[in-house]
């Protein structure tokens, strides 16, 4: 029972950190515990959450996906153009955007697993190429989509949170289930822990390593849809640097950059910590540079705590 409890315990610790942070901002600012804060956080959150799910899975498999921010921009560009220029119905445009992300992920995955190129470099290339494609698709202009797409990110009356938020929450639960309860998830952890031992155990590693990057691409594509919904437009400059926020959230949530260890729920709490921190500091009137400084320190602190915890085990 010890191992299972300690896993829950790790996630519990991060959750406590989140609560303490919220308590801190609750005491330091007047308006932190209001519906307004919840609304701000829940509209900003979904895109980062779904991208972080994909990133966490990739990190657990021992890889990394630096291209997610650019894929978000590419997907939202595809959606905007499909809807406005080609006048496709919005659901069709949305699916096209998500598939565009999946294609980018497929290229990443194929090069990384079957051709054995380092995924760091491959996805770094895709970070540039994806952003370039986003500019080409939108002709470097912000494409205004309008209210129809914004419905996705507006609070549903009676519930108080948006459809985007509910979808991302559902995906967190689903991905956590896949990771902890299915053969697919177990193999990802095994490959990320010790690829050679996994091979000797009869696991064909290539398809798993490819599909995890395809998954990350699809989720980033979905992130593009959510981003466009939040802005009501496709901005080719959107989500610049999002990959780093996703990595930071995953790491705060206890995911190892060396692979083999991580939790989707933990990473989601990591996303919450980052956005509570950002909003709380903003409400305290902290300037942007200081906000970034503090966020950076929190990330480093999280890794330090993680290292210390690792020694305990």
């Amino acid at each position: 029972m010890f191992g299972k409890l300690s896993l829950l315990f790790e996630e519990f610790l991060i959750f406590i950190a989140l609560l303490l942070l919220m308590l801190f901002f609750g005491l330091m600012t007047e308006n932190f515990f209001t519906l307004g804060t919840l609304r701000t956080i829940s509209t900003q959150l979904p895109a980062l959450t779904v991208v972080t799910i994909g990133m966490t899975l990739v990190l657990i498999s021992g890889g990394i996906d630096l291209s997610v921010g650019s894929i978000v921009a590419l997907s939202s560009g595809v959606i905007g153009i499909a809807f406005t220029v080609f006048e496709l119905p919005l659901p069709v445009a949305a699916i096209l955007g998500i598939l565009a992300g999946g294609c980018a992920g497929l290229i990443n995955g194929f090069l990384g697993s079957y051709l054995r190129l380092p995924v760091f470099i491959v996805t770094l290339g895709m970070l540039e190429a994806g952003r370039g494609m986003a500019y080409l698709v939108t002709d470097s202009q912000t494409v205004y989509i309008g209210a129809s797409i914004q419905a996705l990110s507006l609070p549903i009356s009676g519930i108080g949170v948006s459809a985007s938020f509910l979808i991302s929450l559902g995906l967190v639960v689903l991905a956590q289930y896949v990771l902890t309860r299915t053969v697919y998830g177990r193999y990802l952890i095994a490959i990320g822990t010790n690829e050679q031992a996994a091979k000797i155990s009869g696991i064909r590693t290539e398809p798993y390593l490819m599909w995890v990057l395809v998954m990350s691409g699809l989720l980033a594509g979905l992130g593009g849809l959510m981003n466009a919904a939040y802005l009501g437009a496709s901005d080719p400059n959107a989500a610049t640097g999002l990959e780093l926020s996703a990595i930071a959230a995953a790491v705060i949530g206890g995911t190892s950059l060396m692979g083999g260890r991580g939790s989707i729920v933990g990473a989601f709490i990591g996303v919450l910590i980052i956005s509570v921190l950002q909003n709380g500091l903003a409400q305290m009137g902290v300037s942007e540079p200081v906000k970034r400084l503090i966020t950076g320190l929190v990330i480093i602190l999280a890794v330090l705590i993680d290292r210390w915890r690792g020694r305990q085990v």
Binding site: G3, R186, I189, T193, N194, Q196, A198, I200
Partner: peptide, 13 residues
Amino acid sequence: KSQGIFSGKSISF
């Protein structure tokens, strides 16, 4: 260590 066990994982895993 390098080709057999999955380090950090449970006996059951």
